[in-house]
Amino acid sequence: MRRPSIEEHLSSDRLSECILGEPDAWIAQHIERCPACRAELGNLREALGEFRGAVRSWSESQAQAALAIDSRPPESHSWIASHQLALALLLAAVCILTSIVWHGGESAAPASDAVLLNQVDAEVSRAVPSSMEPLMKLVVQE
């Protein structure tokens, strides 16, 4: 492996070796003597460390969110649902009863209609109005 001079900065792979631990002695020496590589290594370590922390925090928050969804009290939801269902059933029952009563009334109507029509027929078929019928009797007798 070719060693870079002190003017030459460490490659990404050499920096990775440092981050993974146990770099060769000359790499460690270079880091000690080269402020640019030291800063680069420090920045990389810090970014990866913060990345780890951020991912762990995010994961925990996601796990808690999932737990909150799972443990959401089902009673309130089912209570509302059951009341809504009961109300819907009640309304349906009222509608059905109203419909039955309404149609029941309609079935009685034809009989009364027939009586009324007979009365109308009887009135129409009279030769004179009922109030003049006595006079008509006198005329006929004459």
Binding site: S12, D13, L15, S16, I19, E40, N43, L44, A47, L48
Partner: peptide
């Protein structure tokens, strides 16, 4: 690591 470092601006 190379890809990450490139993304970081190194």
């Amino acid at each position: 690591m190379r890809a990450v470092r490139t993304r970081l601006g190194g």
